[in-house]
Simulated scan of single mutants.
Amino acid sequence: MTKILTDTDWQELWAESEQNGHASFQSKGFETIRKGKLLDVSHTYECWSELRNGLSISIHQEEFIDDLVWVRDIFDKSQFGLSFFLSGKVRIERHGLTDKTDEIVGRYYSECNCDIKETEWWKAGEKFSRIYLKIEPQEFFQSFGEEELEQIPISLRQAVMNGKVQPYYQQGEITQQMWKVLCNILKCPYQGLMKRMYLESQAIELITLHFQQIQEQEIRNHSFPGKNLRDVERIYQAKEILLGNLENPPSLIDLARQVGINEFKLKRGFRQVFGTSAFKYLHNYRLEKAKQLLALGDMKIEEVAFRVGFDSRSYFALAFRKKFGLNPKQYFQHHHKSL
């Protein structure tokens, strides 16, 4: 017999099973564990660990008593996830986003479902287990600089920089390095604070390996044609747009759109033509322009900082000193001793 459940039904089953003593819920420190038999539906174990702002990890094991169709009707708009399959199989359709896909051992997926409705098909008696990383981009990446954010996948970067969350789904292969990290998570030898720190380090390593896999795939799928003069012209056009908008430069996505080139080609092409990233090129140009304006002596330091695109005087002073060995005030005084 095939059962049909929704997320709301699932929550009600947990509550009823806990009342009847068939399931338990335990929260201790950074971990929350739910386990037991959900009436005549499944044997379940789930351990959630909150690791740091914007990052959590769960170990999830499931075995359904009957075939089940699960209709997801509760959404998390801010959630990005990485799901690694350790055993079992499930077929899922993300309506309007993917056809039916089989999620099996040896595969993992990255996702942001937003308001996408899901239907899942589970087989009775098949033991299913996975490790799942939940990432809330604006919290997790809040300490990263703009140049660093250029290197993360576009879906995450959009969510961090302008709050745009677009649904997506992408499968990948669990590499040997990933398997090693997954085993480390399952066999974590620590407790308390050290366990939390250890799991966080392993989770971040999985995210890093995921980013590496995406980057390698992009390189395989795209190349910057160095002999294509039209593309080189677009790179120079992009540079001029950046330098013409020091106070409010466009994002890389908008810049690529303006010059008619995809973002990957723009980033790679900028490095090939100018030897550095677009962000670093702009940063260095701002400082060189500031140096010229300070030498002229017609503007105050705050005005110079604002003119070349620095909102913070303290950050401007730090960046200026790092590049030229003097802070802006010292440089100004050196050129205008009479002042």
Rank of each mutant, 00 (worst) to 15 (best):
S58H: 04
L294N: 12
G29Y: 09
Q213R: 13
L182Y: 03
K195E: 15
R94Y: 00
K289G: 07
Q138F: 01
V41W: 09
Q215Y: 04
Q272P: 01
M299V: 03
F320Q: 15
Y331Q: 07
W14N: 04
Y132E: 15
F30C: 11
Y236G: 03
I214S: 12
L326C: 07
D66S: 09
Q170H: 12
E46T: 09
I104S: 14
A295E: 15
N53W: 02
E216D: 13
T98A: 06
R130I: 04
S251I: 01
Q79D: 01
E46V: 08
E263G: 07
K77A: 03
E103W: 07
R257D: 13
R72C: 00
T119L: 01
D311G: 10
R257K: 08
T32P: 03
G81F: 00
V160W: 09
F211C: 12
F316I: 02
T101V: 11
K195A: 09
K323Y: 06
Q177N: 12
S155H: 08
D9N: 00
Y108C: 03
S201F: 03
S155K: 11
A295P: 01
W10R: 02
Q11M: 00
F85A: 08
F274L: 07
L55A: 09
L293A: 11
L156S: 10
K37Y: 07
E218I: 05
Y315K: 14
I33D: 05
W179M: 11
S49F: 02
F25D: 13
E263H: 06
L82N: 09
D67I: 01
L318G: 06
D40C: 03
K267T: 07
V232S: 08
Q11N: 03
Y198I: 01
W48T: 04
T101P: 02
Y190Q: 10
K329V: 02
Q213G: 04
D73E: 08
L186Q: 14
L266R: 12
D66N: 15
W121R: 14
K323Q: 15
G145Q: 15
L339Y: 11
F64V: 08
F324V: 05
N184L: 05
S27T: 10
K3S: 03
T98C: 05
A305S: 11
L13F: 05
F224M: 10
I235H: 07
Q61L: 11
F306V: 07
Q142T: 06
K164N: 11
L255F: 10
G297I: 06
I135K: 02
P167M: 04
S129K: 13
L229I: 12
Y198E: 09
D102Q: 12
A278Y: 06
E150N: 12
H335K: 11
F324S: 08
